[in-house]
Design a protein around this nucleic acid. Structure first.
Lengths: 205, 205
DNA sequence: CATGTTGGTACAGTGAGTGCAGTTAATACC
DNA sequence: GGTATTAACTGCACTCACTGTACCAACATG
């Protein structure tokens, strides 16, 4: 009966093995980064800890730093899905804000401890900023979809996307360092930044 | 009579030579990046073009990408100076905005063409984001100086700094790509983002 | 069972970046 | 003016992130 399934979502043994290798690499990478520092950890070590060859590491992650964010791809996809579905809304910016704040619920557990490491290692902050570009593109695309694609609207969409991600990065890093309620601060700042003013007619400079 | 000068600002021959080497390295780096691409250019080539050894390149720039922003250090210092001096102001955020907009005057000439290259080369975008952290620190320090250093104010200052730089980066890159008036768009967006609301009492979430 | 595909391996190579031990020439000091 | 210092630069050897290529063995699929 299983053979009648037509879903491509049924992972077979090969895919399972691949997933497991990737998971193991990510886990050992993070553990080693934490215990001996990012620079002091070589890719060779990570691969050895996961029981695979060095070359295999690079079949799973493009850079050493990327191994610290193994679920990045899925998260971006999930975020895009949350942005495009959901209740109908009048104002794209307030919808954006709601979706981002809702995302904080899934942020709490091990995510914050990752940011604790991240705030101390410049290379990982760089990697974080780099991966944030994917979110920026999603947000910019979402805004352009609502605002139209005239050059000025595109610039505006990218600027907002950058600003929003900047706020998120700064808040999460700071929150991980100290005992701040990241969600509350983000909520307030985004509320002010993205409040109604941006939905007035655009050409006002 | 020259011997009676006490200014440390009078550069001697050694310092002049160093400056000249650095300038030449930066110039050839940019030229080669443009003509053959960033990845296709090796540090060895850049150094050879400037007539120095490869080792010397790294005495001037910490990374290959840094050579595309040879005046970064001076610019940050100048920006901090502009932020801390100037006319007295009531609202730190509007002062920040004025200073940033004033900076656009010195941005026009070759700076924009640099962003044209930058918008096409991911490595240089990364480097740009990295160097932007120095500006972020300057802005955050400026805001903390006015808002106090309680944890929440610090988080807020960092968030704003990140957001402002995000807007600037996105706008400049987009402006370089298309024929947009970066200053006008930045002026409007920052105006809305940094408008008066932020100076109300802070604890309102 | 035959055949193509896929996750992983072995190996050799490139190039960025660093540590260290010089060399040369400008400068400071007496 | 002669000597000691120091600052810019060099040469060399090294590490390590990352890539291209050829290969193998397990698995999937008809």
């Amino acid at each position: 009966m299983a053979s009648t399934m037509m879903e491509p979502s049924q992972p077979n043994n090969r895919q399972l093995r691949r997933l497991e290798t990737r998971r193991s690499l990510g886990e050992h990478a993070l553990r080693l980064f934490r215990s001996q520092g990012f620079e002091q950890t070589t890719v060779e070590e990570i691969a050895a800890a996961a029981g695979v060859s060095t070359r295999t590491f690079f079949l799973h992650f493009p850079t050493k730093a990327a191994a610290a964010f193994p679920d990045h791809g899925e998260r971006v996809i999930a975020f895009r899905a949350r942005l495009s579905t959901g209740a109908p809304f009048a104002n794209p910016l307030s919808h954006l804000r709601s979706v981002i704040l809702a995302g904080f619920d899934s942020t709490s557990p091990s995510r914050l401890s990752r940011y604790t490491l991240l705030s101390k290692v410049p290379e990982l902050r760089d990697e974080d900023a780099r991966t944030d570009r994917d979110y920026e593109e999603v947000i910019a695309a979402f805004l352009v979809q609502h605002w139209g694609d005239e050059p000025e609207a595109v610039v505006r969409a990218n600027a907002i996307a950058n600003a929003v991600l900047g706020v998120l990065r700064a808040t999460l890093v700071a929150a991980a360092g100290q005992g701040i309620d990241a969600r509350a601060v983000t909520s307030e700042i985004l509320g002010r930044m993205l409040g109604m003013p941006f939905d007035e007619p655009l050409h006002s400079m």
